[in-house]
Design a protein around this nucleic acid. Structure first.
Length: 964
RNA sequence: GCGCGGUUAGCUCAGUGGUAGAGCACUACACUGACACUGUAGGGGUCGACAGUUCAAACCUGUCACCGCGCACCA
């Protein structure tokens, strides 16, 4: 036991204990342990990221889960790491390079140099966020920190690509994709955000050829794409236009090429929308592309990848940015006299998630993936083998998974896992071939390989199981001369497996979508594809804690990957956090400046305060309104705990040992029973991921029950400690003066030792500090709290033996409750009569039954009474304020200060209240059918209630009459 | 358009049929020996609206309104 300082200074103890935990290797997971496994793979933050309140929420939850699992005796792996986050990271580094004047455009550096720069940047600044997590107290196994572009991890990504390719699930194709004109890359459907956008709907007419004076009016939001129109579509059931199907109309733009385009029949046209006539631009609209396919329409691309009009858009538009071109094309239509009108119109436009500009649907050659293991992934959630918290996300998951389209996995970026596909003609000798081919996918035609080389070379195709000689390979290729034919080639040499070389052939320039690597996170971080001890012990992971915003991006895909390569779900439970908002309910954002730096908050209030404050206000399933007030509350709670520990330390002696049942007071029994309830409540809440409920229960138990009632009551048993100016008492003297003191200290120690454990997952630092300084570790085995509270056993509800031994019956509980109710009644009197709370006054109790001396002393202390006289035949002066309490009549004699009018008013108020309640319960009882239909217990309870109110009313009326 | 949440005290939220709750904020009193980052007491709600079921509805059912989110989408 060491002395607890007067004030709680979180900064010093936080650093000290984190270092201590590291030194003691507390976070390192041992796969050889025979303890039950508990594991979490951290949602890897962006390697360029810095800690936000979102991370605080997410990682505090994970830390609570991990720390509690350790205390429950489990072997815990919380695996940390970072994500390379392709687009985001490349953007960040490019921006900093431009700022530093090192380049204007990425092409100035070139691919190799830029990627090198990003690596340098990553080495220098990356992973900062992991260091920040330490300030929060995160108990991650840092020895296993992973990065999604670690060589081993990259090998996993490549292996998975090859595997899917071989299964026929990855293919290359020229398709309509979501193109980001800023990032200059294709995006997946999930990276497109639909936003209601205010624009204009333009109505213009086109002339139908060969039908004199016939025009069709078309409504469009994108007139700039008119030069790319290759048809006009109408619904064949539309009587207005059916006769025109098969004829041609004159496309107004570009002016120099007003081509005739066919009028085609399309059932999908909504007759009621606009004019019922649709312009078809197969090159720049997904739906139009499909129409184009059905009618074999020409595809004319008029917008380039940057979103700038090209020559095919015509001289008037070429070189203009797409929105500028929209204005000009409207002017052109107007000049031609073809523009009928334009009206304000709101429609949903797809925006690039990253760049926040409208997506340009664009035809391009990309790699696509047919999602694997969809059936298993649906089933595992549907049948409850994997649980979502809150459960409602299961429906969202189900819905998405039920309607997914192939995933566009290629990105036109430089930072990321490069697609392991080489293509071209091969001209090289056998040994180079062997090197080049390992783990790669070859596309293109194999030819020109000198025969003598081939014959000497053994190449395997379709994994290592099938070894073909090069001759066979040649035959295989010649049998499929299609230039798009694709084969998979691996080396037979195990050493070359999945290591790739880039010499000789043209490698696909694209990289893979970041999520194509993140979806392997739960097992690729554990050494897959090797059958490691870590995987065997810790896969599947137990819990995943993440935001619902990445349920499709990450969660669903991880589940599919888990089934596809591990044959099993990647985690058993998924906890979806809410989104952190400011107190006005707005999302945290840099531009709003409403996003405080968690490290500043930690510096100001301490990590434990931040953790507790956030968790207390983060109910399962709803967003978190962040308010610094909550952190203040957490800080206050820490201070309260600190001071309660100091109070314990005022009294001499270490832990007092076993509690003696024969010396227990009703207060002792009451707080022990409250502790038992708290243990049950907190454990149940944590089992169900109701963190805020657990935090509130902790707060209530410790503050409202332990400090406000028990500690105050315990002062009766503990007595006072001599002031420094007074002569100190010897232990013998103290024991004689306060015979209950030692036992009360034992109860206090019992409560504190349990409370610190219950608090530890939420507030690791302060609980460790107090665990140590109060000496609770001293008699415990090293692995059960003797070294650190981290491994102290999680409190269990009291068992039958314990309850019997200490006679913890609800009856005993009632005795304390009666006492406290009496105190409340007395304090109420005191405040009603404006007695200053520091003024010691005399109370008189006319008791129902004999009151034990100790209980009388407790009452006296809690009432801050000068004296509490127990007088069974007390005759109060007329008008003496009194309250009916469970222990009898409590009087507050005011000796000449009696304010009869005030007392009458107070009683009047009371009587009104009681009369109301009595009327309520009588109405219910008088209700015909109530007595017949209601369960007996409820009926009894109501009758009892009626009697109680009635008695109370009679008493009050008597008291009022006594006032005269 | 389809689906999912939500609507309870000034604020943030508990409360799955039987006497409406917590924290914060507010008011009053008190710097008493663990704690003013405190203690004590108090005020404050026709539980979004309407209808139904029931002896009894914040709670169950239906309809509607408003807020938030997801999916789809008509140019």
């Amino acid at each position: 036991m060491s002395e607890i300082s007067k004030t709680y200074e979180p900064q010093a103890i936080e650093e000290k204990w984190y270092a201590d935990w590291l030194a003691k290797d507390c976070f390192t997971a041992d796969p050889a342990s025979n303890k039950e496994a508990y594991s979490i793979a951290i949602p890897p933050p962006n390697v360029t990221g810095v800690l936000t309140l979102g991370h605080v929420l997410n990682n505090t939850i994970q830390d609570i889960l991990a720390r509690r699992a350790r205390m429950l005796g489990k072997e815990v792996l919380w695996l940390p790491g970072t994500d390379h986050a392709g687009i985001a990271t490349q953007n960040v580094v490019e921006k900093s390079l431009r700022k530093a004047g090192e380049m204007k455009h990425r092409d100035d550096l070139g691919r190799e140099k830029l990627v090198e720069k990003i690596w340098q940047w990553k080495d220098e600044y990356g992973g900062k966020i992991l260091k920040q997590l330490r300030a929060l107290g995160a108990s991650c196994d840092w020895s296993r920190t992973r990065f999604t572009m670690d060589p081993e991890y990259s090998a996993c990504v490549q292996r998975v690509f090859v595997d899917l390719y071989k299964k026929g699930m990855i293919y290359r194709g020229k398709r309509m994709v979501n193109w980001c004109p800023v990032a200059l890359t294709a995006l997946s459907d999930e990276e497109v955000i639909m936003k209601p956008t205010n624009g204009l709907l333009y109505y213009f007419k086109v002339e139908v050829a060969d039908v004199p004076n016939t025009f069709l009016t078309i409504a469009t939001t994108r007139p700039e794409t008119i030069p790319g129109d290759t048809a006009i579509a109408v619904n064949p059931n539309d009587v207005r236009y059916a006769h025109l199907i098969g004829k041609f109309a004159k496309r107004p733009l570009p002016l120099e090429n007003q081509a005739l385009i066919p009028i085609v029949a399309e059932e999908s046209i909504d007759i009621a929308f606009g004019t019922g006539v649709l312009k078809v631009t197969p090159a720049h609209d997904k739906a139009d592309f499909e129409i184009g396919q059905r009618h074999q329409l020409e595809t004319i691309e008029v917008i380039d990848p940057r979103g700038v009009m090209n020559e095919l858009a015509g001289a008037d538009l070429a070189g203009l940015e797409r929105f500028e071109a929209r204005k000009i094309s409207v002017e052109l239509l107007s000049k031609l006299g073809l523009l009928e009108k334009q009206e304000p119109y709101q429609n949903n436009v797809g925006y690039s998630e990253r760049a926040d500009v409208p997506i340009e649907p664009r035809l391009s050659e990309q790699w696509f993936l047919k999602y694997p293991s969809v059936k298993e992934s649906l089933a595992v959630v549907a049948d409850g083998a994997m649980k979502f918290y809150p459960e409602r996300w299961a429906k969202v998951y189900d819905h998405w998974l039920g309607g997914i389209q192939d995933w566009c996995i290629s990105r036109q970026l430089w930072w990321g896992h490069r697609i392991p596909v080489w293509s071209g003609l091969m001209h090289m000798n056998g040994s180079d071939l062997c090197k080049i081919l390992s783990g790669a996918i070859m596309t293109g035609r194999l030819s020109g390989i000198p025969a003598h080389v081939i014959d000497e070379t053994v190449i395997s195709i379709n994994d290592r199981r099938f070894n073909y000689t090069a001759t066979e390979l040649k035959e295989h290729c010649l049998a499929s001369p299609d230039s798009h034919h694709q084969i998979v080639v691996c080396t037979t040499n195990e050493d070359f497996g999945n290591i790739f070389y880039t010499i000789g052939l043209d490698r696909d320039p694209d990289v893979l979508d970041t999520w194509f690597s993140s979806w392997l996170w739960p097992f690729a971080t554990m050494g897959w594809p090797d059958k490691t001890a870590t995987l065997a012990k810790f896969y599947p992971t137990t819990d995943l804690v993440t935001g619902p915003d990445i349920i499709f991006f990450w969660v669903a895909r991880m589940i599919m990957a888990g089934f596809e390569w591990m044959g099993e779900m990647p985690f058993r439970n998924v906890y979806f956090t809410g989104i952190i908002r400011d107190k006005q309910g707005r999302k945290m954002s840099k531009s709003l400046g409403n996003s405080p730096d968690p490290l500043d908050i930690i510096a100001k209030f301490g990590a434990d305060a931040l953790r507790f404050g956030v968790m207390r206000s983060a109910p399962l399933g709803s967003d978190v309104m962040f308010d610094e007030k909550n952190v203040e509350l957490g800080r206050n709670f820490c201070t309260k705990l600190w001071n309660a520990a100091r109070f314990r330390q005022m009294y001499e002696g270490d832990t007092e040992g076993e509690i003696n049942p024969s010396l227990l007071t009703s207060d002792d029994r009451w707080i022990l029973l409250k502790l038992d309830s708290a243990i049950r409540e907190i454990s149940a809440a944590l089992d169900e991921y109701r963190f805020s409920d657990a935090a509130q229960a902790l707060y209530r138990f410790f503050w409202s029950e332990y400090c406000d009632w028990y500690l105050e009551a315990s002062k009766a048993a503990l007595g006072r400690v001599p002031l420094p100016t007074e002569a100190p008492m010897s232990p013998e003297e103290a024991a004689a003066a306060y015979p209950l003191r030692a036992n009360t200290l034992a109860v206090i120690d019992f409560i504190l030792a349990h409370t610190l454990r219950l608090m530890h997952p939420f507030m690791p630092f302060i609980t460790e500090e107090l665990w140590q300084s109060l000496g609770f570790r001293e008699e415990l085995p090293p692995d059960q709290g003797g070294e650190t509270i981290m491994f102290a056993r999680w409190p269990q509800p009291f068992d039958a033996d314990f309850i019997a031994h200490y006679d913890l019956t609800p009856l005993e509980n009632a005795a304390a409750v009666a006492k406290y109710d009496t105190v409340l009644a007395g304090r109420n009197l005191r405040s009603t009569y404006n007695i200053p709370s520091n003024k010691r006054v005399r109370f008189v109790l006319q008791p129902n039954e004999t009151l034990a001396a100790h209980d009388a002393e407790v009452l006296k202390i809690l009432l801050n009474a000068e004296s509490l006289d127990i007088v069974s035949n007390y005759v109060a002066p007329q008008g003496t304020p009194t309250n009916l309490t469970p222990l009898g009549h409590l009087f507050l004699p005011l000796e000449g200060l009696i304010d009869v009018a005030a007392e009458r008013e107070r009683l009047g108020k009371e009587i009104t209240k009681v009369t109301d309640e009595l009327a309520k319960v009588r109405t219910k009882l008088a209700n015909p059918g109530f007595a017949d239909k209601v369960p007996a217990a409820v009926l009894d309870e109501h009758r009892q209630r009626e009697v109680t109110w009635q008695e109370k009313l009679a008493q009050l009326e008597k008291m009022q009459a006594a006032l005269g």
